[in-house]
């Protein structure tokens, strides 16, 4: 089982909450005003960061999947 991060760019509002919660996993594209997933399969140690980012995304644009 590995962790996979999914960002729905149709929903991303560019509020950048995730880059604060999980700076190692998410970045922001200033040109498109949208999230960039830096690490699609983050290490298990980053799980708490990713959980917080998913939980607090105001646009509900982020999800975690187990593969």
């Amino acid at each position: 089982m590995t962790l996979r991060v999914v960002a729905d760019l149709g929903l991303c509002q560019g509020h950048q909450m995730c880059t604060g919660e999980a700076p190692d996993v998410f970045d922001f594209d200033d040109d498109t005003d949208q999230v960039v997933v830096l690490v699609e399969h983050p290490d298990e140690s980053l799980r708490p960061q990713v959980v917080a980012a998913v939980q607090y995304c105001p646009a509900m644009a982020l999800a975690m999947e187990e593969e």
Binding site: Q13, G14, H15, D33, Y56, P58, M60
Partner: peptide
């Protein structure tokens, strides 16, 4: 902040 972050911020 969080889930209630202002929808109209942009």
């Amino acid at each position: 902040g969080g889930r209630h972050f202002c929808l109209g911020a942009n």
